[in-house]
């Protein structure tokens, strides 16, 4: 287990870039989808980009700028899986809302996403303690 605090550690940079790319993709996808939705508006679609922005791009940019190393891979994996679940869930919820339909199964995205993020946080704390 390595938890480097070297000021030159930029290992978080690639993850930050992926987060930024995901943010950009979601923003463009949501914008284009809204253009062709005959004015039917869904906050889930429009604001889906916030998940990769707030959960990936900003924190990993911060890690890279502060020169901090990436957390334990399992904490990272759970965190990434949670972000992906919430992002996909938000976009899919937007698609359903714009079509004018609902499906209670979409609740799974929010529960699973939150659970994975919480799991990531717990893994981060546990691995920090053991480091």
């Amino acid at each position: 287990m390595t938890l480097s605090t070297s000021a030159t550690d930029r290992s978080a940079l690639p993850t930050a870039f992926i987060g930024l790319a995901a943010t950009l993709f979601c923003a463009v996808f949501g914008g284009v989808y809204e253009i062709f939705s005959h004015g039917v508006w869904s906050g889930f679609m429009v604001y889906a980009f916030l998940f990769p922005l707030v959960l990936e791009a900003i924190p990993f940019c911060w890690l890279a700028l502060r020169g901090k190393a990436l957390p334990h891979p399992w904490a990272l994996n759970l965190h990434h899986a949670g972000t992906a679940t919430l992002t996909v869930g938000s976009i899919f919820e937007g698609v359903l809302a714009i079509y004018g339909t609902t499906n209670s199964l979409t609740l799974v995205y929010w529960i699973a996403g939150a659970a994975l993020l919480a799991g990531g946080l717990v893994a981060l704390l546990l691995t920090r303690k053991s480091a």
């Binding site: 399992w74 994996n77 990434h80 899986a81 992906a84 996909v88 899919f92 199964l105 799974v108």
Partner: peptide, 22 residues
């Protein structure tokens, strides 16, 4: 770890496909 993410991504895609079909 990357295998976990790939596998989870696959599960996410399949689940989304099922909800869409449903």
């Amino acid at each position: 770890q990357s295998r976990f993410l790939i596998l989870y991504g696959l599960v996410l895609v399949l689940f989304t496909l099922y909800v869409a079909l449903d």
